[in-house]
């Protein structure tokens, strides 16, 4: 599904990714962990097409498409979704309006008919129930005056509606209390199936209690330094990252 080979990237004068290799087969959920500043968010943003980072070497292939050649919206049309670490506020633009525009843009791309207002609202209501979101959400501006938790829920709501093939969740768990975390995890799990892959970027293993990963990777100083099963996350929780970085890995 997603195949990253020897990816190097920089922002301004700083090299952030120094040769990342990552394979996520269809149907699998991978977790990406690592200390602050290791390049996790950069990787997530490059997959989505952020132009602030310059890819200097390597490739990102997704379903046999060269992802780096596509604009952010083309990637979205192809089924790539990024749940933002810091979802953006867009004052005056209604949540529902944005969602509908996004969904219909994708449907157009796939040659499907666009949903009318009624069908769309029905879909949104159903997913809002899943995410336990309040009706008033419908009339508010995109992320405008949302609490941190509400923003994260909104990201996952959008994901459940857009039904991406590859979902990258960038620290979607941070700032959530345990109840909200369960709701978010529930939303994510509802999308798990054999045709869909996910990359969970996270600091904490607690998210992985609710969304069980197939593989855990550790990114440190711009490289994947270790990959393993979900028990790796527990080990990291216990021992921190230092033992990996100092090079004397057991």
């Amino acid at each position: 599904m997603l195949s990253i080979r020897n990816l190097h990237a920089r922002a301004d004068d700083m090299e952030i990714l120094k040769g990342v290799n990552l394979e996520i087969p269809a149907g699998e959920v991978h977790a990406l962990m690592g200390p602050n500043g290791s390049g996790k968010s950069t990787l997530a943003q490059i997959i989505a097409g952020r132009e602030d980072f310059k890819v200097t070497a390597g490739e990102v292939r997704y379903r046999d498409i060269d992802l780096l050649e596509l604009t952010p919206e083309q990637r979205a049309h192809e089924g790539v979704f990024l749940a933002f670490q810091y979802p953006v506020e867009i004052p005056g633009v209604n949540n529902v309006y944005l969602l509908k525009a996004a969904l219909n843009a994708q449907r157009r791309h796939r040659g499907e008919t666009e949903l009318d207002a009624f069908e769309f609202l029905q879909l949104v209501r159903e997913k809002m129930q899943l995410m336990q979101m309040d009706e008033s959400f419908l009339n508010r501006g995109v992320n405008e005056d949302f609490s941190g938790g509400e923003k994260k829920r909104n990201e996952v709501l959008q994901m459940t509606i857009l039904e991406p093939t590859l979902a990258v969740l960038d620290e979607t768990d941070s700032g959530l209390d345990i109840d909200a975390l369960k709701v978010v995890a529930n939303g994510v799990n509802s999308l798990r199936d054999a045709s869909r892959s996910m990359l969970l970027v996270t600091h904490y293993q607690r998210l992985l209690d609710y969304i069980e990963p197939d593989v855990v990777h550790v990114l440190a100083d711009g490289k994947i330094v270790r990959s393993g099963g979900k028990e790796l996350a527990l080990e990291l929780e216990e021992r921190g990252y230092d033992w990996l970085q100092s090079g004397n890995a057991a």
Binding site: A48, E51, E73, R75, G92, V93, Y97, A101, A105, L162
Partner: peptide, 21 residues
């Protein structure tokens, strides 16, 4: 970028933001 990541073209995104403003 947020709008484009959701699949909305840059032009539509600008219109959307301006109208919201």
């Amino acid at each position: 970028f947020y709008c484009r990541q959701r699949g909305i073209s840059e032009e539509d995104a600008v219109n959307m933001i301006v109208n919201g403003f």
